[in-house]
Nucleic acid binder design. Structure first.
Lengths: 215, 215
DNA sequence: CCTACCGATCGGTAGG
DNA sequence: CCTACCGATCGGTAGG
C-alpha cells in the first residue's frame, strides 16, 4: 500500500492527451461535483487534466466557453434520455410522464451538468447560439408531448405553452430540490427520486387533464 | 456634472456605521444582484460598505456565516409574505394558493435572497441551526395548508408529505426558472409572474383535489 | 474599526 | 502544449 503513489491517472508531466478538450470537460464536472462551483478555476481544471494552466486556452477562449461546452453536452444527454424513456411508451400521457421522469432522473444522475445548464453563468446568452438551440430542443420535446395529449383529447385545449411551462416548472422544481439536497428530511421515508417524479407527474397530468368543474 | 464625484454613500474612510452588520448584508445582496455570485468576496462587500477588508471579521467569522445571515433573513421575509397573502383568504384552497403565489413572488422580487437561500453554499448544514429552523418554518406553513385542505375534504387523503413536496416542487420550479431568466421566450406573451403562479397553483390543486377516476 | 503585512491563487500573455 | 512571467486579488492575521 505504501508503494501505491497518490497520483491521478496521468501524472507524467509531459503527457499528451488524445483529446484534451474532453478531458477538460470531464475534469470540470468532477471538480464541480466534488468541491462545488466556487472551486472551478481554469487552473485547477488544467491541473486535474494533467496539463499546465496555459493549455486550456488552446481549446476554450475563457471559462465561460468551457462552461457552455459542458452545458451543451448536458442538454444533448438529457434529450437523449428523455427520448429513450418516451420511446418505451405508446400512449401520449405515458410518453409525457416518461419525459418528465427522465428530466428529474437526469438531474439526479448528473448534478454537475444540471447545475451548469441552469446556473446563471452565461452573461450574454446571445454568444452561445448552439447552447440555446440545445435547450430549445429539450423544451420542444415537452411541448410536443403536451400537444399530442391535447390532440388525443386527454388534456385541456387551447394554448399549449402555459401547460408546457407548468410541466417544466414541476419537474425542474423537483430536480432542483433533489440536486440541492433540500429533500433530505421531508423524504427520508425512503422514496426514491423516480418514485417522487412518477407520483408528481401523475397528479400533474391529472390536474391538466380535465377542465375545471362548471360552477 | 463634472463636480459630481463618483463615490458611494459613504466615501469618508473613517466612517463609523451605526449597524455595519446590516450594511454588510445589504452590500452582499446588491453585489450578487449586480455582478453575480462569483463576484461575492468579503473584501468587495467591505469595500461597498465603506470599511476596510478586516472589518467584516468583527461580525462574521467567514463568508459562509455572512451568507447564512442573508439566507435566514430571506426565509423570515418569505414566511412573512406568505402569511400576509394567506391572511387575506378564508377558504383552505385559496389560502394554499396564496401561499404558493407568495413563494414565487418573493423569489422574483428578491432574486439575490432566493439564490442564497437555495444555493449549495453551506457545506455543513448542521452548523446553521437557526437557518435550518427558518427553512422548516416556511415549509411548515405549506404542510399546514395542505392538511387543512385535507380536513376540509377538498384534497386527497393520506400522507400530507408527498403532496407538500409536490406543491413545493411546483412553486420552486417556477420561481427558479423565473429567477434564472429561463422563461423569456416561452412567456413573452406578456404573462406576469403572478399570473403564471396563479395559473399553475390552480391546476396543481385541481390535480391534488380529486381521487383518480376508478377504472 | 484601521494599517500593514503574509502566502497563495488567479486570469492572461509572450515566446518558444 | 510548455516555461516563465505579469499585475491583481483573495482570505486571513498581528498589532494597535
Amino acid at each position: 500500500m505504501a508503494a501505491r503513489k497518490k497520483t491521478t491517472a496521468q501524472s507524467k508531466p509531459g503527457y499528451h492527451h488524445g483529446d484534451l478538450r474532453r478531458a477538460l470537460i470531464e475534469a470540470s464536472l468532477a471538480l464541480i461535483a466534488e468541491e462545488g462551483f466556487s472551486a472551478l478555476t481554469l487552473r485547477e481544471v488544467a491541473r486535474r487534466a494533467g496539463v499546465t494552466h496555459a493549455a486550456p486556452y488552446r481549446h476554450f477562449p475563457d471559462k465561460e466557453a468551457l462552461l457552455a461546452a459542458v452545458a451543451e453536452e448536458g442538454f444533448r444527454a438529457m434529450t437523449t434520455l428523455m427520448r429513450e424513456r418516451m420511446d418505451k411508451e405508446s400512449g401520449p400521457v405515458e410518453r409525457l410522464s416518461a419525459c418528465g421522469v427522465a428530466y428529474v432522473l437526469f438531474a439526479v444522475q448528473h448534478p454537475a451538468h444540471f447545475r451548469v445548464m441552469f446556473g446563471p453563468h452565461f452573461t450574454k446568452p446571445a454568444d452561445h447560439a448552439e447552447l440555446a438551440k440545445e435547450g430549445s430542443n429539450a423544451f420542444g420535446l415537452l411541448v410536443q408531448n403536451i400537444v399530442q395529449c391535447q390532440q388525443a383529447g386527454v388534456m385541456l385545449e387551447g394554448e399549449p405553452m402555459p401547460l408546457a411551462v407548468m410541466a417544466w416548472s414541476q419537474v425542474h422544481g423537483l430536480a432542483s430540490l433533489l440536486v440541492d439536497q433540500q429533500l433530505q428530511e421531508a423524504c427520508k421515508q425512503g422514496a426514491t427520486p423516480e418514485q417522487l417524479a412518477q407520483f408528481q407527474t401523475r397528479l400533474l397530468i391529472e390536474g391538466m387533464g380535465r377542465p375545471p368543474q362548471n360552477g
